[in-house]
Structure formats: structure tokens, C-alpha cells
Amino acid sequence: MPPASRTIALVLAAGLALSACGAAGEPPRRAGSGSASAAKASPSPAPEPTECPDGELIEAVEIPAVHADPVHIPETTVGGEKVPAVTIPGVDIPAQRVPAQCVEEKPAPGGCLGAVRIPGTSIPAVSLPGVRIPGVRVGGLEAEPVEQEAVAQEAVVQEPVSQPEVCQSRPSEEGEYVASVYRPSLYRPSLYRPSLYRPSLYRPRVCNDEGECIPEVKVPSVSVPSVSVPSVSVPSASLKSYVAGPGQVIKGDDQIAYNIEADVLFDFGKADIKPEAEKSLTELAASIREEVPSDAPVKVDGHTDSKGDPASNKALSERRAQAIAEWLATKGGIDRSRLRTTGYGETKPAVPNTRPDGSDDPKARAKNRRVVVSASRS
């Protein structure tokens, strides 16, 4: 590891507090730029996912269609009087579906455990219509009507559940103890819609002395099967405590992170790596190869200060993260497939961008302009 006095401030952290909850960009804010982007069309609904790059896929639950044939009562004659034919409607309930979803695990900078959300879901309502076998009064015979009321099951709804991002505190000096952080497990209970049943209906046959009859009628029972949606859980997670080392060179048992001030790497408002940063990046890549398993993913997170509009800051932080990842892939000996980049813009400041009285703090903003490279050591 390079000593703390070298050009680059390498901060090795058990999750890394420096990046815990960071900041962004540099380009001057243009007048009116906020209002120009304020009115945006509401996004169209996202398509149902087939995979979830940032979280678990919750499989869809298919609910089969239900069909019952209509019952036809043919025309008949009793005592010289015609009884017209009647058709009792059948049942057709289309197939239903509880759509697939993604557990949402937000990316987080080193020293933070990202926010997690299990979206809400529901099993739709279902009903079976009422049914009636009509009565008949003809030729001195009478068959009473028979009825069965509609039956229904209401929708079953489960609200979303979530846990917010949690971050370790930023060490301010050598030897400072930085406590562990813990994100509790998350659980969405299973859902269950009971089966639905409409009993069979029967109107008995009625006959006179001449052997003429009003025929019997049977309407079979109809049932809708029960539906279950499995529970979903996300296990708890934690980052271990650590003690800041000389010059805030910090390395935890399970995580390592490197905090590099952007001013060392880039000119103001730019994303082109400065030639003089090559030596520091070479040292960084050597440390990654030594400290991190060769198959472990490596995160590269860009941050800016609060100068400039948020959209420009986010774009700048993304370009800077991509520039460092590209350097690590082409010159640092880190396999490109291991690298993951995220631009946080000004949303995760390491320190406040302003003084307590609200005035600008250029030195603090310089600390917020940074790139954080982190990985698991286990």
C-alpha cells in the first residue's frame, strides 16, 4: 500500500465511511436549467421483468381459467301447453396472473448497505355469478324455481416493505473507531386467496297422471381453486467495525475501499484522466490485485459536489466512474467483467458542502469530488 502522504488518498474501508452517503459535480449551474427539466411526461409502466440484474426475481403466479358449460333445458309440452326452451348461462372466468416482480436492491457506495425494497403485490378478486333454474306452471303441474346467489372472494393485497440505506460514519482522524452497521432482514408474507365454490342446483321432475312431465334440471357445481403467492425475504446484512489507520488508510476484515479525490484524477468539470494520475492509479490497481480475490466484483462509484445542476453532476460522476473502470481494465490488469460503475452525482456527500452558517465551503466540496473503488476481500 502507498503511504498516506503520496499523491492519492487511498482509503481502505470496511464498507468505507468516506463514501457513505456522498456528493457531486462541478460545472456552473445555468440559469433556468432546473425549470427546463421540471416538466417531464410521466413514464409508461415498466414491462414485466424476466430477470433482475440488481435483485432477486419474484416469479409470476399463474391462475388458471375456470369454465362451466351452459345448461340447456329443451322445449316440452304438458297438457297441450308448450314450455319454451331455456338456456342457463355457463361460467367463463379468464385466467388471471400475479405478475413477476423484482426485489429492488439499490446500489450503494462503499461503507453503505443499499436500500432494499420488496414491492407490494395482490391476488385479484374473483366471483361466480348467481344462477337460477326458472319455475314452470303448466297443465296443472308446478315446478318451483331454484336459485343460488353469487359468491365472491375479495382481492388479497400485500403492501411493499423496505429498509433504508445505512452507512458507517466517516473517520475523521487516525485511530478513530468506526462502528459496524446493520440492515435488518426484510420479509413480505405469503398471500392466500381461498377457493370459491358455488353448489350444484337441482329442480326435480314433476309428472301428472297421464305420464306427462316437467323434466328435472341439474346445474353442476362450479369451483375456483385457491391461490397462493409465496413469501419473499431478503437476509440481513452488516459491515464490520474498523479502526482508522495512519492517514485514514483503512482496511476492514471483509471489505476494502479506496477513496480518490477527483481533483487528483481529473481537471475541473472533466472526465479525462490526467497524465500525472497514472502513477497513483498504478498503485491502486496493484493493491486491488493483492488484496481482492481475482473473481470478486469491483465497484467504481463516482461522486461530485453540489455545484451545478443535479442532472449534469450525475452525468459527470458516471463518466468519471467509467473512465477509472476503463483504465483499470486496459492498464490496471483488472478483468473488465468484474467492474461495476455507478454515478451518484451530488447525492452522497462525504461531508457537508457548506459551513454551518450556510456559506460555501470549497475545501469540503473538494472532499466530495471523488471516485470510490470498493470490493469484498472474502
Rank of each mutant, 00 (worst) to 15 (best):
residue 307 K to W: 10
residue 123 I to F: 11
residue 120 G to E: 07
residue 227 V to R: 10
residue 52 C to R: 08
residue 49 P to A: 03
residue 56 E to Y: 02
residue 295 D to G: 14
residue 94 P to D: 10
residue 39 A to I: 11
residue 362 P to M: 05
residue 370 R to I: 02
residue 183 R to E: 02
residue 183 R to G: 03
residue 58 I to V: 14
residue 58 I to Q: 13
residue 256 I to F: 01
residue 375 A to V: 03
residue 347 T to A: 12
residue 220 P to M: 10
residue 108 A to Q: 03
residue 219 V to T: 11
residue 13 A to W: 07
residue 149 E to W: 01
residue 99 P to E: 04
residue 159 E to R: 04
residue 369 R to C: 01
residue 315 A to T: 13
residue 148 Q to A: 14
residue 227 V to F: 06
residue 131 V to K: 15
residue 131 V to F: 09
residue 172 S to G: 15
residue 218 K to C: 13
residue 100 A to L: 08
residue 10 L to M: 14
residue 345 G to P: 06
residue 6 R to V: 11
residue 202 Y to Q: 04
residue 274 K to R: 15
residue 57 L to D: 00
residue 140 G to R: 01
residue 260 I to E: 07
residue 62 E to K: 10
residue 369 R to Y: 04
residue 352 P to C: 06
residue 277 A to R: 12
residue 311 A to F: 13
residue 160 P to W: 05
residue 141 L to T: 02
residue 357 D to S: 10
residue 356 P to T: 03
residue 63 I to R: 08
residue 304 T to D: 12
residue 52 C to V: 04
residue 286 A to W: 09
residue 8 I to E: 13
residue 6 R to K: 10
residue 82 K to F: 01
residue 331 K to G: 01
residue 115 A to L: 03
residue 260 I to Q: 03
residue 150 A to F: 05
residue 46 A to P: 05
residue 30 R to M: 11
residue 319 R to S: 14
residue 66 V to K: 12
residue 67 H to D: 08
residue 57 L to Q: 01
residue 209 D to Y: 04
residue 245 G to N: 13
residue 63 I to D: 00
residue 245 G to D: 12
residue 164 P to K: 03
residue 369 R to G: 00
residue 360 D to R: 11
residue 232 V to P: 10
residue 201 L to N: 05
residue 13 A to H: 09
residue 147 E to H: 07
residue 256 I to P: 00
residue 269 G to D: 13
residue 294 S to Q: 15
residue 107 P to A: 10
residue 148 Q to Y: 01
residue 98 V to W: 02
residue 93 I to A: 07
residue 124 P to E: 07
residue 315 A to N: 09
residue 86 V to C: 08
residue 302 G to T: 08
residue 166 V to G: 01
residue 239 L to R: 15
residue 219 V to D: 10
residue 261 E to M: 10
residue 339 L to C: 01
residue 352 P to H: 05
residue 31 A to G: 15
residue 34 G to I: 01
residue 339 L to P: 06
residue 241 S to N: 09
residue 306 S to K: 11
residue 167 C to L: 03
residue 281 L to F: 09
residue 311 A to C: 04
residue 147 E to P: 01
residue 321 A to Q: 09
residue 103 V to M: 07
residue 248 Q to N: 15
residue 87 T to R: 15
residue 311 A to H: 12
residue 81 E to R: 11
residue 343 G to F: 08
residue 30 R to S: 11
residue 370 R to C: 07
residue 212 E to V: 03
residue 70 P to L: 02
